[in-house]
Amino acid sequence: MIQELVWATSLTLMAVLALVFIWVAFKARIELPDYGPAIASAYQKRTWLFGLAMVILIWANYRTLSHLPYVSSSAAQGSAATVQPVEVVGNQWSWTITPSNLKAGQTAEFHVTSTDVNHGFAVYDPDMRIVAQTQAMPGYINKLRYTFTKPGTYRVLCLEYCGVAHHQMAADITVAAR
């Protein structure tokens, strides 16, 4: 619930800031000395390039920020039957993952927490490319959904330095074919 509130507030403030910026830019008409048609043409192109850059940036933000892997409360209620819950507990210097055997094609919802300090829960595919990650924090449960598309052994590593044996904090998730 709090994530949706923070998300909506952030989007609203970004939109207000963009509108204020655009309003100030259009109101700030500065009379320039007559440097000739070449300079006037350059200023006109700059205005159009600025507008194009704003459209591209808004589109890029929409495309990237609208597909975050974190679970909203409304999404969690709607499709509980198709999601396999996975409990993840981080503690110095190990992961407890229950269950650790999953099926390819089925969405796993990781409930990630910690018993001691912050840990970075990162899932790596069999080629050691990161495919999903979130924070494991004491007293809080982060929910992360990921659909494993291919079978294999996925590696879980800690991305947050958590002490002297941080480099040994690893676990495996086995993903079987359907």
Rank of each mutant, 00 (worst) to 15 (best):
V117R: 09
A104P: 01
T174N: 15
V117M: 11
V89G: 03
A42K: 00
R155S: 06
S41F: 06
F21Y: 15
V156T: 04
L32G: 04
M137R: 11
L102F: 00
R46I: 09
F148N: 05
D116P: 04
L13D: 08
L102V: 02
A122S: 11
P151H: 01
S79D: 15
T64C: 02
A170K: 15
P85E: 00
L159F: 09
P138L: 00
D172I: 13
V83N: 05
L144Q: 00
K143F: 02
A170T: 15
S73G: 05
T113K: 03
F26S: 13
L11T: 07
Q133S: 15
Y124N: 02
T98I: 03
T174E: 15
P138V: 03
A177H: 07
H119E: 02
W7I: 08
A15F: 14
S114G: 01
A177F: 05
V88K: 01
H119G: 04
L11Y: 03
P138K: 04
T47C: 06
S114L: 00
A8V: 06
T82Q: 11
I30H: 01
I58K: 03
E4W: 09
L102Y: 01
L157A: 14
A177Y: 05
P85D: 01
E160M: 13
S10N: 13
S79R: 13
G139L: 01
Q133L: 14
I22L: 14
S114E: 00
Y146W: 10
A81C: 03
L65R: 04
F21W: 13
G152Y: 06
G90M: 10
G152D: 02
P69S: 04
M128T: 07
A171C: 12
C158P: 02
A177Q: 11
D127F: 07
A25E: 08
Q135E: 12
G51Q: 09
E31V: 14
L5W: 04
A80N: 09
R46A: 13
T64W: 05
M1F: 10
N101S: 06
A38L: 11
G78W: 12
F110S: 00
L19T: 09
I130P: 04
A81M: 10
S10I: 12
Q133K: 10
G139R: 01
C162S: 15
A132E: 02
T174W: 13
T113P: 00
W23H: 10
Q92C: 10
I97M: 03
V83E: 07
M169D: 15
I97D: 03
M169Y: 11
T12Y: 13
A132H: 02
D116A: 05
P85S: 00
M128G: 00
F121E: 02
V71Q: 08
Y124R: 04
V131D: 03
H111S: 08
W7T: 13
M1I: 05
L157H: 12
Q77T: 11
A76K: 05
G90D: 09
W93E: 09
V55L: 13
T149D: 09
V117T: 14
V89Q: 04
A53D: 06
T9Y: 13
A132Q: 05
